[in-house]
Design a protein around this nucleic acid. Structure first.
Lengths: 201, 201
DNA sequence: TATTTTTTGTATCAATCACTACATAAACCT
DNA sequence: AGGTTTATGTAGTGATTGATACAAAAAATA
């Protein structure tokens, strides 16, 4: 049990807002519009607070983004830990990841694409590095999963899966619907299965 | 013969700079940093002119970007017209497009990815719409090429190819080298061939 | 030479950017 | 109650954004 509500109240004037709720609101906003397009003024208005409260709670815009990335990994991202199952064929799991990505990237019509993938190309160095680190971590998880049974194919298969996810995110942002995204994901999934099976065309 | 140099000089004080050279310089800058990250001040400094000359010649930042997109289609983009050959198998041509994209997206190490693909996600509505229109045009060319011999597969195959190119552009921007990009492109090319051949896995 | 036309350089414009100084308010501790 | 601590609201900071007003300069035309 984590003491989220901070029952043993600390000293000083209490916060008028909930910081964790603020991170959730910020996640929606950053995901919907992208890091660069959300100004601190936009954010403080959405949170119903003034700039000093914002900076006291989150340090900076990039600092808030870092917290949003953590929350996204836990709540909004493709659940790699659930989908990459050691008891199922590697290709089947990777196909499941791609299909899950296709679905998630348009699950919220106002927050399409992948928050992390899109964040890796924003113009703020701090936020971009944080997003790149998150992406690198996800790729490492995928690579390790593949390498356990297909060590020689892990690198190139990870590149293909990651590139496909980036493409799906871009296309989701470009307005493609779930059906078209799923068709792309399934075709990529078949390609992965084909390559891992070692069969020629 | 087009009178580029405008030999029959028009009235008024002559330009101190060449507008077409300016578009070329702008293309490099927009491609290297992205539309949003290049300020008008950056651009006028690179062009060696002052803001009034900039606006007199190009109208606006987005107006210059539109001219850059036209120039890119002619000089920097994947040459679809050359690669999509009616006398070659469709799958072979699409694979050639993907490989050409992989090569081009890292050909200039300081201007990676596809200018058009990256431009479709910038924060300026005018520039974004122009880039989306350019992308839609390229997709229409690809779709028509496929439809001539595989009408039932044209839509989904175009989605896959376009998504793969978006993924390649994203990964090029993320720092992948030509070899890894090419491996992704070739795997996607094999997937296209596999699907168009109608063979099961 | 005088007029017209267009571009040029200087010096801005208002708006927005991320961020903060400062005094007050609201809680706990002694 | 008095002192300490933290968060708050007001009102800004300097820097940068895309875009201009204005007059002088440089060309063709009359």
């Amino acid at each position: 049990m984590i003491d989220t509500k901070n029952t043993s109240r600390s000293r000083g004037r209490p916060r008028r807002f909930d910081a964790d709720e603020g991170v959730a609101t910020a996640q929606q906003l950053f995901h919907a519009r992208g890091y660069d397009a959300v100004s601190v003024a936009d954010m403080t208005e959405a949170l119903g607070i003034n700039p000093p409260s914002f900076y006291a709670a989150f340090g900076s815009k990039a600092g808030l983004y870092a917290r949003v990335l953590d929350r996204y990994a836990a709540t909004g991202a493709v659940p790699l830990a659930d989908l990459l199952r050691p008891d199922r064929p590697v290709a089947e799991c990777l196909a499941a990841v791609l299909e899950a990505a296709a679905r998630q990237y348009v699950a919220d019509p106002v927050a399409t694409g992948c928050l992390v993938v899109e964040g890796t190309r924003c113009d703020d160095p701090g936020a971009r590095n944080a997003a790149c680190a998150a992406q690198a971590h996800a790729e490492a998880v995928i690579r390790a999963f593949i390498a356990a049974r297909h060590p020689e194919a892990a690198d190139r298969m990870t590149d293909f899966v990651s590139s496909t996810m980036s493409g799906l995110s871009a296309k989701a942002r470009n307005g493609l619907d779930a059906d078209r995204l799923l068709a792309i994901a399934r075709m990529a999934g078949r390609a992965v299965a084909q390559e891992l099976s070692g069969k020629a065309g």
